[in-house]
Design a binder for these strands. Structure first.
Length: 783
DNA sequence: GACCTGCTGCGGTCTG
């Protein structure tokens, strides 16, 4: 390298730029970059210094990878320069054996963890280009990479290894003794999409795997997290560096604010129009009723609006369930058919086969052909589909963070982001319940948009004990070493990190529960080994995931796989369904192989999909109150949404909700404390424990066929005593199994785990204290 | 009343 290139139009190159290795400087110059992004500029110094962990947070994927890898590759290139004197260089260049030996001695230098295989494939292409400049090899390792390629990497480990958490787990289980040699030269650990791991079983697995890597190589390389800007970075820093979170350098991109054009459109769910089948003879109705005839008017109107305004460009339409995705994709395809124009609307969700999803992704990437994906959260993050013209959200968004992530998919520097929200409310009549009158969907969506515009985002949940993932890590560590003592396991796994709440007593209890299920056995010398059941689990490839998936049915037609749906959906021969945007009839069900054969059909109803739910946060409910009590009409509401908001506010006033949280009528008692779902759910559980039949309905706790006096007495009794422990209250929850290995836990551990994860005792007792005076007043009025 | 992610080793057959 004779001279380093001058940089940009500034008279002096930036100080960060000047610290990069000349080869990295040359790469930047050759790419035609005139300046470094703000995040890149600020990340270079701390990463080169190698003594602190770094979080690089920016909204788009572009630039974060380079912000991490320019300084990382500079470090590796500098180290290579120092270890290879010039005269040896010419010798190794002509001696392939010597070169191979030098490289094999180094081992993997950068471990890059990604939550998605598709992201690894994307990054592999980008990094090959960048790393080639520094003469650093790049290897990818995940389930779709061939065994022969993996063996090559193992034979000659070097440079950057791109890997999923599951594949790293498999390395520990199947090649435990090789791990130290493979990673002995590790200089950096990079975690992409770090936010997706927070407070999840998979995140605990990542933290534990990284701890095990450090134990194996007896050093701690700096960790670099790449993340979307999602709120407070305190928990993100604690995830990355549990021992010393305050020392983590957070590089947050300042150029985050973009213009947003948004509209919230209101609809009223009118009943389906009179179906022609109702006038036909009864025996033909079952199979010949097309789904359009049973689709409510609001859905038809929403599809119509989407068709008219989104056609001709690339867009993402987020619906809240796979069922809704199928329904709208079908409606939009038929709009195209009826108008004799090519269809541009395609469904995209996790039950569709990889091939079908990739074909939709390719159409989105193809700039010459407009395409709109109707999708679930599959297209929220990860793979690079480029920027789309607009985002549509059908129904209230699941969370403010999800809304923010989705919006980030549209708009570039010069173009504003465009967001359309479509929200329906029930048609009202004399017998409508107060919850429908309050127009909660429109009010809640408005509240969420206001919070997003205020830059508020939900914090991650409390990760709790993670017993499920700890069970996996115990079995994996036993496989890695061929056995381990209880003390060794506790020391290795339960230090600062995901299992730090698990003390010796809890750990011993957990080991006993595992022994009961024959996952582990103790040898006479005290060494813990796999039991027969443990052996069976560890030897199956499904062991490597920390998260749980329900068994699924494979949907086939003519020998071709269409996709899969969870098993708890009832299926019979002759059942009609819509899948992959088309109509099908079930022709054969093979229960043992879980395979369903289908043929094309003219009619059908969308399949139902199973799943679990999480809730609306405290802050969103509080913001709803301020929307109800304000007279402000946001300019981004359309006329219908404004009308629905006015109706909601009128109902709020008429029901006197600015002065009370309790509504009493002939059917029972309704509590409206405007708190988040976990406090509502906890209060409901406590009421059930007192023998009161309560249920959570939207923002309310509903108690049917009960007197206000009885509710008042119960709540007074609950408040008079000290709140129960989370474990005692959790014992009332019928199904405490959430995560993959929760079935192993004994009663005590399972109550502790579920209690911490799902219950908010403080919130619930604050709720009782808040409704108590209102219910006392309601009691006086009624008597 | 939800959604998403991921997966080894081995034996068999085929191709250049």
């Amino acid at each position: 390298m004779t001279s380093s290139p001058t940089f940009g139009s500034e008279p002096e190159p930036s100080s960060a730029f000047s610290r990069l290795h000349p080869r990295m400087q040359r790469w930047i110059y050759d790419e035609g970059w005139t300046t470094l992004h703000d995040a890149q500029e600020r990340a270079i110094g701390p990463i080169l210094d190698c003594d602190r962990d770094v979080i690089i947070a920016a909204a788009t994927a572009a630039g974060k990878t380079e912000a991490a890898f320019l300084p990382i590759l500079s470090t590796l290139a500098t180290a290579a320069d120092e270890s290879q004197p010039a005269e040896q260089d010419s010798w190794t260049a002509h001696n392939p054996w010597a070169e191979r030996e030098t490289e094999a001695a180094v081992g993997v230098q950068v471990l890059y963890l990604s939550p998605l295989k598709a992201l690894i494939n994307d990054q592999f292409q980008r990094l090959e280009h960048l790393c080639g400049r520094a003469s650093v090899p790049v290897h990818r390792w995940h389930g779709d990479v061939s065994g022969s390629r993996k063996r090559k990497t193992l034979a000659d480990p070097s440079g950057v290894l791109l890997i999923t958490p599951e594949s790293l787990e498999a390395l520990f289980v199947n090649r435990g003794p090789q791990v130290p040699g493979l990673l002995k030269g590790l200089r950096y650990v990079v975690i992409d999409e770090l936010h997706s791991f927070l407070a999840t079983p998979r995140g605990a697995q990542v933290q534990s795997l990284l701890n095990r890597v450090e134990i194996a190589i007896r050093c701690r390389p700096p960790r670099i997290g790449l993340s979307a800007t999602l709120g407070d970075m305190t928990q993100t820093a604690a995830f990355l560096c549990p021992r010393n979170p305050e020392r983590v350098v957070v590089v947050e991109s300042s150029s985050d604010d973009q213009d947003v054009q948004l509209q919230l459109r209101g609809y009223v769910a009118t009943p389906p129009p009179m179906s022609p089948s109702q006038t036909r003879s009864p025996e033909t109705t079952d199979h010949e009723t097309s789904s359009e005839e049973s689709i409510s008017g609001d859905r038809l109107a929403i599809a119509e609006h989407i068709f008219r305004h989104l056609r001709g460009r690339d867009n993402l339409v987020f619906a809240n369930s796979r069922r809704e995705v199928e329904l709208y994709a079908d409606l939009l395809a038929r709009h195209s058919e009826n108008r004799h124009v090519p269809n541009e609307f395609w469904p995209h969700h996790g039950s569709l086969s990889k091939e079908m999803r990739e074909s939709v992704e390719d159409q989105l990437k193809d700039r010459n052909r407009p395409a709109t994906a109707v999708c679930t959260s599959t297209l929220e993050m990860g793979i690079d589909i480029g920027s789309v013209s607009s985002i549509a959200q059908i129904g209230p968004p699941p969370a403010v963070t999800a809304l923010r992530q989705r919006l980030g998919r549209s708009g570039r520097r010069d173009d504003p982001s465009v967001l359309r929200l479509y929200v329906s409310e029930h048609d009202l009549d004399q017998r409508s319940c107060p919850i429908d009158e309050l127009r909660c969907n429109v009010i809640q969506t408005t509240a969420m948009v206001r919070l997003m515009l205020d830059h508020w985002l939900e914090p991650p949940n409390d990760p709790g004990f993670n017993y499920s993932t700890l069970i996996q890590q115990i079995m994996s560590t036993i496989a890695q070493h061929g056995g381990a003592t209880a003390n060794e396991l506790h020391r290795a796994l339960c230090g600062p990190g995901p299992f730090q709440l698990v003390d010796q007593t809890r750990f011993a209890r957990l080991l006993r529960a595992m022994a009961v299920h024959d996952l582990i056995v103790q040898a006479s010398d005290g060494l813990l080994l796999h039991g027969g059941e443990g052996e069976r689990h560890v030897n199956h490839y499904s062991f490597y995931t920390a998260f749980h998936t329900a068994p699924e049915w494979r949907l086939m037609t003519g020998g071709k796989t269409l996709g899969t749906i969870p098993i708890y959906h009832p299926l019979y021969e002759g059942v009609l369904l819509i899948f992959a945007g088309k109509r099908w009839k079930v022709t054969d069900v093979d229960a043992s192989a879980r395979v369903v054969d289908l043929e094309r059909s003219s009619g059908g109803v969308p399949p139902l999909f199973g799943g679990d739910g999480t809730g609306t946060s405290n802050q969103v409910r509080t913001e709803m109150v301020s929307v109800y009590e304000s007279t402000d009409n946001p300019p981004w509401l359309d006329q219908n949404a404004r009308q629905l908001m006015a109706e909601g506010r009128a109902a709020y006033g008429r029901l006197g909700l600015s002065n009370t949280t309790v509504l009493v009528n002939s059917s029972g008692v309704l509590l409206l404390p405007w708190t988040g779902d976990s406090a509502l759910f906890t209060a409901m559980t406590a009421l059930l424990g007192e023998g009161i039949e309560a249920s959570v309905e939207g923002p309310a706790i509903q108690m049917l066929r009960i007197s206000v006096e009885e509710v008042a007495t119960t709540i007074r009794r609950l408040l008079a005593n000290a709140p129960p422990s989370v474990e005692d209250l959790a014992a009332l929850i019928q199904n405490r199994e959430i995560d993959k290995w929760d079935w192993v836990l004994d009663h005590t551990l399972s109550c502790e785990s579920a209690g911490i994860r799902r219950l908010d005792i403080d919130g619930a007792w604050a709720l009782f204290a808040r409704v108590a005076p209102d219910i006392a007043r309601a009691e006086t009025t009624s008597s």
